[in-house]
Structures are given as C-alpha cells and as structure tokens.
Design a protein around this nucleic acid. Sequence first.
DNA 1: CGACCGGAGTAGACACTGTCTACGCAGGCT
DNA 2: AGCCTGCGTAGACAGTGTCTACTCCGGTCG
Lengths: 196, 196
Amino acid sequence: MTESDTGLRARLVDVGVELLASEGPQALTLREIARRAGVSHGAPRRYFPTHLELLSAIARRGFDDLADRVGKALSPDPHDPLDPRAQVAALARTYVDFALDRPGMYELMFRHDLLESGTLGLRGTSLPLFSLFADLVGEVHPEADARRTAGALWANLHGVAQLWRWRSLPLAVPGEDLGPLLDTVLAAHLGPEGGR
Amino acid sequence: MTESDTGLRARLVDVGVELLASEGPQALTLREIARRAGVSHGAPRRYFPTHLELLSAIARRGFDDLADRVGKALSPDPHDPLDPRAQVAALARTYVDFALDRPGMYELMFRHDLLESGTLGLRGTSLPLFSLFADLVGEVHPEADARRTAGALWANLHGVAQLWRWRSLPLAVPGEDLGPLLDTVLAAHLGPEGGR
DNA sequence: CGACCGGAGTAGACACTGTCTACGCAGGCT
DNA sequence: AGCCTGCGTAGACAGTGTCTACTCCGGTCG
C-alpha cells in the first residue's frame, strides 16, 4: 500500500508517469505501459478495466504533485507566513510553473474526457485546490464576489498556461519570461499590488 | 474552386465539418470521413498526405467561421459603429460563444499538435484576429502596454471558454449564464465599464 | 486513328491500438 | 489431497493510419 509497493497496479502508474514525462501523452499506450512494466498487454485490465481509467490514475499523480507544490509555496517558512495577496501570487506562479515544468502531465490532467471518467471522477480532485484559491482571493478582496473573481482569475491562469505552453502568445510577450505577464494578470484581478 | 466544389478535396472537408459537429472530435477518423464521402479509405491520401493535414483543413474552416462572426459582431450597423470598449466586449462575447456553440470545432482548433502541422501552419491563422484584438485593446487603454494587456485578456477568454465548456467552474458560477463572469473578466482587464 | 501517359481512386497489406475471452498457474484454505 | 480464487498469459477481433501496387479513364501527341 506504500508508494514503493511492488504491486502491479502501482508499478503501472509509475511507468505511466515516467513514460508521460519522457515521451509525451500520445505515448501513453496501454500496451506500451504494459511492455515497460514487463507484463503482457492484458495484465493492466485486472486493475484498470479501461485505458481511460489507467490514464486517470496517472493524472491523479499529477494533481497530487500540484497540491504538494502549492502547499510548499504557500508556507515556505511557517514562522513568517505570507500575506494573502502574496499567497495568491505564489499559488498562481506555482500553477503556471507546474504547467511548464510538466507539460505532458498538465495536458493529461486537463483532458476533459478524463475528467468525466474514473470511479470517483477526476474533476473533484481539483476542487479543494480551487476552494483554497477562492478563500485566499476572498481575503484579498473581501468586498467583491470572491467566487466569481476567483473563477475569473483561475481561468486566466489556465489560459496563460495553455497559450504560453504552445507559444500562442508570441506577439504579446516577445521575451522569454512570463513573469511580467503574470504580474499583469494578477494586477488585473486583484488590483495593483499594494500589499506587503 | 467554389464552396460547392464537387471535388473530393472540398467534399472531404465538408464531411469532416459535419461529422465533427454531429459526433465530436474523436469521430474524425480518416476512414470514417472517407466512408461518409463515399470513397475508399486510401482516397484522401491524394489530397492530404497525412491525417493531421486533413484535420488542419477542417480546423481552418473553424477559424474562418470565427473570423466571420467577429467581423459581424464588431460592426452590426456600419452607420453606428461601436466604441472600442464595446467592440472588445463584443469580440470577447463572440469568442466564448463560438466555443460553446461549436465545442467540437473549438476543441479541434486548439489542439496544439495541429497548430504545428500543416503546410503554412495553423497557428498563423489566428494571428490577424489577435492583432485586431490587440489594436482594440490599445484604443481602450492607450497608456498601458496594449500587447501585454491584450495577451492577458486573450488568455482569460480562452480559459473561461475551456473551463466553462467542461463545467470546471461550477463553484464559481452556480447559475447558467456566463454573462456576469465575462463582465467580471472584462472589467478586470479594461477597468470598470465607463465607456458608452 | 491508335498508342501512350498521367492523374484519381481502389484494394490489400502492415504494424499498431483497445477490448474481450479462454486458458494456465501458483498459493492458501478446508 | 483437492479445490478454489486471484493474477497474469496468449490469442482473437475490430478498428486505425500509412504505404504500395494496381486499375481505369480521359486527354494528348505521333
């Protein structure tokens, strides 16, 4: 039941995560994963009745990793917590960095046909993160509709991550650094950074 | 060479567009398109050396439609043009509406593996639209960096379209109408709507 | 007028894929 | 000892994209 469980189920997911990072999402074939795990192509079926469910399990690893990164980014030092505005900025930065760090995983995580599938559904996995995000936004902007503002900003981060990843914003940002763009986005939704 | 060209090339794209609308992107099989066009599965190869190129041609139809819609939305009445702020709002609305109206086409248009392929590349197809968008934003906000602001807003629209489409913003907007969310987005990037 | 020739579409093969089913094969329980 | 159940194997099947050999037919040229 631990992480280094030698069970086939965990090993398949491990292999999938590696394969995803090294070869990209289109390489995540059921048979290729089975091959690299050293089992026959029918073996995964015992644990994942369908290919999509195996992909969901792999994507879940991505959500776990993202949650970990966010947790670390929000409280780098427990004795000196960040103010809400800085927390939102840190979360945003972490989110977009994740998309650039692990592009294949990010792509897999937001395949909408994956969101529907799975026993419990993959969609719920990101809900706690969004709630946390909405709460933080609410602390920055107590007067506004925090849910709506958070939704708008969330969508903005998502869009920035996507468009930046496949370089569809070349005109917007000639340079290589997306920091200024992120600052623009944050300032737009949260107002000019007066905090700190 | 006209639209109703009975040539196989145009017919394949026509069939693809219909199939995309009726069955979704995963139904856009090379063989299924050929089947519905009444030719053998090898026939498309003469005009589209690879499956991706056929998909690119289909997606290009989507970009054309989007450009048409934007053109009509920006100048509903030539004698009474909209002010820049209203034009940006109309473009934003048109963009998101397009994504909801033709979800399959929208999804196909922004498959990044399609953006790379094609003879001239599909990416350039959306550049004029973005330039127009950036110009409009520049008229609304002459002082700011129009390119960056336009990029941020563009990404926001993209994110809203995506997340709304697969219902990943349920907490943010309990209602069915995405109008308020769009207003929030526009107000964030362009300031409160003082124009008119 | 007849031969040729090149574009257009057909038909079959190939290596893949995901899914399904029947089959072994081990270990543990009664 | 015998059986059963969990786990993985192996093969079949339909479907896919790509490649290649072939046919067919209309136009051109000698």
